[in-house]
Design a protein around this nucleic acid. Structure first.
Lengths: 300, 300
DNA sequence: TTTATGTATTAAATAATTAAATGCAAGACT
DNA sequence: AGTCTTGCATTTAATTATTTAATACATAAA
């Protein structure tokens, strides 16, 4: 019960490592500077110093602190390893939802999710609270959460929103100076598209990666924290759905390659209007594909 | 320590109210149906029944439950009133940030916020986690949260994002059928704008409300959960900043009225391109105003 | 066979608890 | 004097423990 002392333990080892760089019998800097070195508060530093004194590593009386002997490997303190990264929780969660085809309106148990993802319950709750801002999950009246996503309405609204963002991005690309890295990226993408088009009969499943690269390049010109946040989620969802809808995959991908090239053509000609139209055409296809992949799933 | 029994207390009173509708000595329905009536689980219902039996309100043996006497006012159980609504927390929080001009990079104390807003700490944490999705707040390495918002970059990106959403909305309005309620709303708005323009010398501060109504009407045609979520935050921020930047308020508002009317003109002529251009002009003005309001704050 | 109840298990909300951060005053050193 | 350092006290935050509530399943009654 009560919070862990991981912060202290990590700080302790960090301070120990710092002391190894000091000459023998060197004076030890002030608590404040040690706190800065370890990136923690003075409270934690004092705990560290207390332990170091106890172990006979240092002498400590008031502001007189001296190193008595060089720290050894066995002086280090054990840190409870974090069971699982908490940063890529979003990636892993969406992956889980899509990979296992978790249907819409599924109740989500925080306790269970906490186990499967190896993340503390309240961290998960915070995460879900964040997702609820995207309308992906919501609180249930009787407590807990529920997955809302991946109904038809959701897919339509997601596609529409994606279109709005992406058309904006395309328009901006057309107005960007020639020395912007996006032009090099697009030139490379054109070659890779043409190469894949030639080998489409065998390598058509390679398109998914290419698609992601293409849209990432287009959106890279937009520097906007709000849009960036959404793009992460959007691209993940589209990516997976494309991968799993296997109906007419080869034909779909071949068509998409042409659509991508049409966009690149228009952009390199700096024809913003043509690029918008080409992008619109492509996004309409994407929307249809996403919707049909849902329909296939509904039917079994 | 441990969760409150508010759910039980509310259910109890609800069941009592239901029993008042029953005739004397009536049999009481099954636990499952009572659970449905009160909107809680059977566990809670059984607690309710136990208390009702204890008070002599009902007899209860196995599945034989009968009303013994009509419930009285004093049979009701006290429910701890929720100190403060938790739903409008967003409104109140943003209001607080903007009204007190909380500067960017201010550490936010969950404990303190919890007191000022009368909301439990973990509810606040969930709320902040949600806001972090909008890039308004973020976690601090040493724990807690910090307000990021309302730097120049933030304002620029917010304005740009707003423009993207709003230009999309304007385009959609132009394509909406004649019987859509937006047309009636716009007709009314045109009149109100003209009326305010005539009385601009005295009533210019009335514009803020009109502005909000105008943008709400435009955006009402877009049915999209993602966009709707953002619009709430965006409109609130712009609304407050407009209200507080008092420099040349009268002139600004007069100009904005003309810009609004220009948009309405183009829309009623179903000229999507002209409407986009008019909206673009207006949004550019808005952005400038928002930025200058920040600049004024920085200097004083 | 259906429906209701009894019982057990699991999950969720929330306060208690400890770790850590912060604030302030007094003292030491330059 | 003035700055830096420490000692001490207070406040805050993370995390567990605990209670309430929901759910699952078995059993019994209709």
């Amino acid at each position: 019960m009560a919070r862990s002392d991981t912060r202290y333990r990590e700080a302790y080892n960090r301070i120990l490592a710092y002391c190894e760089t000091l000459p023998p019998k060197a004076p030890i800097p002030s608590e404040t500077s040690l706190a800065e070195i370890a990136g923690v508060s003075r409270t934690v530093i004092r705990r560290c110093l207390a332990r170091m004194e106890e172990l006979g590593l240092i002498s400590w009386q008031g502001r007189d602190k001296h190193l008595l002997r060089a720290p050894l490997a066995e002086d280090r303190i054990a840190v409870p390893e974090t069971p699982s990264d908490k940063n890529d929780l979003e990636q892993r969660f969406l992956d889980w939802v899509l990979r296992f085809d978790v249907p819409a309106n599924t109740p989500l148990s925080v306790a269970e999710l906490s186990r499967t993802f190896g993340v503390a319950q309240h961290d998960l709750k915070e995460f879900l609270a964040g997702l609820s801002r995207f309308g992906l999950v919501s609180r249930r009246p009787q407590g807990g959460w529920m997955l809302l996503g991946f109904t038809k309405d959701f897919a339509i609204e997601l596609s529409d929103f994606r279109s709005v963002l992406e058309l904006n991005a395309v328009t901006q690309v057309a107005e960007v100076p020639v020395d912007h890295p996006v032009w090099a990226a697009l030139a490379q993408l054109r070659q890779d598209h043409l190469a894949l088009k030639n080998a489409i009969d065998t390598d058509f499943h390679e398109f998914s990666k290419l698609d992601e690269r293409f849209h990432l390049a287009i959106n890279s010109v937009v520097r906007n924290r709000f849009i960036a946040e959404f793009q992460k989620v959007i691209s993940l969802i589209f990516h997976y759905h494309y991968m799993w809808d296997k109906t007419e995959e080869k034909d779909r991908n071949a068509a998409a390659i042409d659509e991508h090239i049409a966009i690149i053509d228009a952009l390199e000609a700096r024809d913003a209007e043509a690029a918008r139209l080409a992008a619109q055409r492509h996004l309409r296809t994407s929307k249809t594909t996403l919707l049909s992949s849902l329909r296939h799933h509904d039917l079994g």
